[in-house]
């Protein structure tokens, strides 16, 4: 896809001010997102993937509690370009929920318990498009139908507690899609759901994306989901991108030891023998972001680390097949079996 990117993030950094000093949650993250594309953002909890997406939505607390660095240029529907990180709060609000929207991880708590779901979907339409209350509600009904909620128009007057988790997540999706956004950020939208419901929601997202041509940033730690939905994959560790590239090479021939570790910690069943492949957990834990190691952040947990890894941070460098890897030893490891 060689079009003008919808979203171009350069050197994004997010730092929280804490009692114990500045906490770098996201460091130097850059990526491009084109229309119709799905980018999977993968990492353990605490890797900075959620914070990065919240920062793009400007939903992190304001300065001085959080400071943002870098830029995030967004190409709006009218062709204008805006830096999401520098946009005035009012202007940002007009984009949010309109051209860029977001689905959250917790469908059970992300809907307001005292308002009817129809109203909750309609209010974004009323606010962004100036629609009448009636027209907005009618549109909300269509959206509910589109996301596969049975008896959609009657459900408009339901309260969130009337609905199951899967149904609530569909409502959240309907809400996010209410104004046909150009970019959708989905932060682990299926994590809290049953596996069957998970598959339905993924299917639904794919369909809707196909119909509207919107770009999706899909945040997950579930590599099965990545294989299902992503065009490109970006792996984050301790606030940094450690590997980035097209889905198939990254998932089948990972270069960074961390990506390999993630892949090996996913249970798989060998279809021929019906036996399970050996499962290996990554030893150790994510480093304390207040006390990051001076070299490669993954080095303390890495089986292939050598003294040089711990001495200085490795650069993010091209590693063939259009991918980027942040590992001093990727060449040596590429020859060794995974």
């Amino acid at each position: 896809m060689a079009q003008e990117p919808l979203l171009e993030v350069s050197h994004l950094s997010v730092t929280f001010a804490t009692e114990n000093g500045p906490l770098p949650a996201v460091r130097d993250v850059s990526f491009r997102l084109s229309a119709g594309e799905t980018l999977a953002l993968v990492g353990e909890s605490g890797s900075g993937k959620s914070v990065a997406s919240l920062a793009l939505m400007r939903l992190v607390p304001p300065a001085p509690r959080v400071s943002l660095g870098g830029s995030a240029h967004f190409c709006a529907a009218d062709g204008s370009r805006h830096d999401l990180l520098a946009l005035a709060p009012d202007a940002m609000r007009r984009l949010r929920g309109n051209e860029i929207s977001m689905i959250f991880q917790e469908p059970m708590t992300s809907l307001n318990p005292v308002h009817r779901i129809g109203e909750q979907i309609a209010e974004a339409i009323i606010f962004h498009q100036g629609a009448s209350h009636r027209a907005a509600l009618a549109r909300a009904g269509e959206l509910l139908e589109k996301v596969g909620i049975p008896d959609a128009h009657r459900r408009l007057s339901a309260f969130p507690h009337h609905l199951s988790g899967g149904m609530r997540q569909r409502v959240m999706i309907a809400m996010a899609l209410a104004c046909t956004p150009r970019v959708l950020i989905a932060d682990e939208p299926t994590t809290a759901l049953d596996v069957t419901v998970q598959a339905q929601i993924l299917e639904l997202l794919k369909e809707l994306q196909h119909a509207n041509g919107m770009a999706v940033v899909f945040i997950t730690h579930n590599l099965g989901v990545v294989a299902e939905i992503a065009d490109r994959v970006m792996v984050m560790y301790a606030g940094l991108i450690v590997e980035e590239g097209a889905m198939v090479p990254v998932m089948t021939r990972p270069r960074m030891p961390y990506t390999r570790g993630l892949l090996h910690s996913v249970p798989r069943i060998d279809p021929e023998t019906l036996g399970s492949a050996p499962l290996t957990a990554i030893p150790g834990t994510v480093p304390d972001p207040l006390h990051l190691p001076p070299g490669c952040a993954f080095a303390p947990r890495c089986a292939h680390a050598e003294p040089a890894c711990a001495a200085a941070p490795p650069p993010l460098e091209p590693a063939g097949e259009g991918r980027l890897v942040r590992c001093r030893r990727w060449r040596a490891l590429a020859e060794a079996p995974a």
Binding site: L59, R96, S101, F104, N112, E123, A124, M172, A176
Partner: peptide, 21 residues
């Protein structure tokens, strides 16, 4: 609460989020 974040994510003005949600 999460639903307040949702309301902000919809792009509602801070006042609407406060009084309505």
């Amino acid at each position: 609460q999460d639903f307040i974040r949702t309301a902000h994510a919809k792009g509602l003005p801070a006042r609407t989020v406060l009084w309505h949600h």
